[in-house]
Design a protein around this nucleic acid. Structure first.
Length: 507
RNA sequence: GCCGCGUUGGUCAAGGGGUUAAGACGCCUCCCUUUCACGGAGGAAUCACGGGUUCGAAUCCCGUACGUGGUACCA
């Protein structure tokens, strides 16, 4: 018997940015699909018009593209099971909701929001702060279980607003096997009668996932653990509508936590690290949430650090490319427990990728950065050489500015304190003479610049070491960067001499 | 409150009856380098607690604590 083709889907709601947990879920979806030669589908859950945010859908796809995770089917890519936006599939949901009512698994409820609130207030006690619309209260409410059929028909024909709720069975153990958690079970009487179809005719998530997963032939469904509590509703819906044997296999992903509790958008601003893949500017609040991309992360590093936050292959390997992840990923090895996000380690991954990758991968990025700071790069070859020279000291792409800008721009100030205490006439003398000697060099290259320096130092009876730091301050402005003579070789004869002479004026 | 899920150093984690309980980030020390890094060598630091089961428990079972999610006509 042929294995049914693996089809996994990611279904974000376009209500704002894509936070870490979301990106990781897509990533795992993608890895699983690719690993099993299956298809990766992205559908948009735009059921809630009140929170729908303009531009968010495009933003989601931009993030995926940046990460290198291209879907096979989506509103943007098309596919034979479309449309891929829930708002465009409205008609089918009503049919399923009605089918459930006819079979006796769901019912019409006519309670107004005020009546619901009143019910909750009446039933609220110390012990039970949030009463549910469940088996015990549905008999006291205004719905097709308490009303006579004629009354129900009359209300509907009069255009009364109604929702369709699932009728949870009385005493039934609902259990299923989760790919990550194993056997999970719930007592049906403890789950409330969730709304399936809203008064505006739009489905809730509960009805929509089940119907869409069925219609789109989804075989494996990954989502965040926050959905585990409502899994019994989905299981029941599958059982009532399409049969449990057609139900996809579920995997509930552990949560990603922030420094204090669940990682939230606000944690980013609070602790100074991004929580979204890319910058997200909410057009409603005009609030900007910083992204990893703009913070200076490489996509390779971003997906790497995300993939291993809650999963590892059991070996000591820490650095994985997307291809390696596809090859090595296994859903069984995803952790059950949530993981706290550690920005220090995230930066380490970026650092590793900056070192690992050829500078050609990100030189354009750095070039743009320089341009934004007013430094125009014309000599690409030379530029790449510089980047190669300093990449070991850059953790974020933005670090390249401090680490490499002095190759193209004379220092604006000098770390005087680093040289002043030990400065004397003999040193001024030395550097003046060194300039003269440099002037005479025909072949401007590393070896000769260095040997000239050392020979002169010996002749003047000064330890070369005592002169190297001042020389560095003259060329760089501060105490960092690669070997001084490398820098001198790179910036050229005239520039080196000019910088020494300029610095000598203030030393 | 109730329900679900979880719990190995500060963080990410390997290990699933017998191990000196891997490794990584971070921190500290030293080496390299008369800069800052990279690199190298070390160090401090862990099985949430209490009961079982067992010759033997981080590992299996039961409680407790703690964390986290749900308890919406949000996803």
């Amino acid at each position: 018997m042929p294995q049914p083709k693996v089809r996994v889907r990611f279904a974000p709601s376009p209500t704002g940015g894509l936070h870490l947990g979301g990106v990781r879920t897509v990533l795992y979806n993608y890895l699983f699909a690719r690993k099993h030669g299956g298809e990766f589908i992205v559908r948009i859950e735009d059921t809630d018009q009140t929170r729908f945010v303009e531009g968010a859908e495009q933003y989601i796809f931009d993030c995926l593209k940046w990460c290198g995770i291209e879907p096979d089917e989506s509103p943007l890519h098309g596919g034979e099971y479309g449309p891929y936006r829930q708002s465009e599939r409205k008609a089918s949901y009503l049919t399923y909701a009605k089918e459930l009512v006819e079979k006796g698994f769901a019912y019409y409820a006519f309670d107004t929001p005020e009546e619901l609130e009143q019910m909750r207030n009446n039933l609220k006690t110390e012990e039970n702060p949030s009463p549910q619309y469940d088996g015990t209260v549905r008999n006291k409410m205004k719905n097709s279980l308490t009303l006579l059929p004629d009354e129900v028909n009359k209300l509907i024909s009069e255009g009364a607003r109604f929702v369709i709720r699932i009728k949870m069975p009385e005493h039934e153990t609902i259990s299923f096997t989760d790919m990550i958690h194993g056997e999970v079970s719930f007592e049906s009487s403890l789950v409330d009668d969730k709304v399936l179809l809203k008064a505006d005719g739009m489905p809730t998530y509960h009805l929509a996932v089940v119907a869409d997963d069925y219609l789109m032939k989804i075989t494996h469904a990954f989502r965040g653990e926050e959905w585990l509590s409502s899994a019994p509703v989905h299981i029941l819906l599958w059982k009532y509508l399409f049969g449990l044997n057609k139900m996809p296999q579920w995997a509930h992903m552990p949560l990603i936590l922030g420094p204090s509790g669940k990682l939230s958008k606000r944690d980013g601003a609070k602790y100074g690290f991004p929580v979204f893949a890319m910058n997200w500017n909410d057009p409603k609040t005009n609030e900007l949430t910083e992204g990893f991309k703009e913070k200076g992360f490489l996509p390779e590093a971003f997906i790497n650090l995300l993939a291993v936050l809650g999963w590892n292959d059991g070996t000591e390997q820490e650095i994985f490319s997307l291809d390696e992840l596809v090859e090595k990923f296994s859903i069984e090895r995803v952790h059950k427990g949530g993981a706290k996000f550690d920005f220090e380690k995230a930066k380490w991954y970026n650092h590793e990728w900056i070192k690992k990758l050829d500078v050609a991968h990100y030189s354009l990025l750095v070039k743009e950065l320089f341009k934004s700071k007013g430094i125009l790069i014309t000599d690409e070859l030379n530029f790449n050489k510089v980047l190669e020279l300093v990449k070991d000291r850059c953790t974020l792409i933005s670090d390249f500015y401090t680490q490499a800008s002095y190759f193209f721009k004379t220092p604006e100030s000098w770390d005087i304190d680093a040289v002043k205490p030990k400065w004397n006439e003999a040193k001024t003398d030395f550097f003046n003479e060194y300039c003269n000697k440099l002037e005479a060099i025909e072949n401007w290259e590393l070896g000769i610049i260095e040997s000239t320096f050392k020979e002169l130092a010996v002749a003047k009876n000064i330890k070369p070491g005592e002169l190297q730091l001042p020389m560095r301050i003259m060329l760089v402005g501060a105490k960092f960067g690669p070997a001084v003579f490398e820098i001198a070789a790179m910036i050229g004869k005239t520039e080196t001499i000019t910088r020494i002479k300029n610095a000598l004026k203030v030393f």
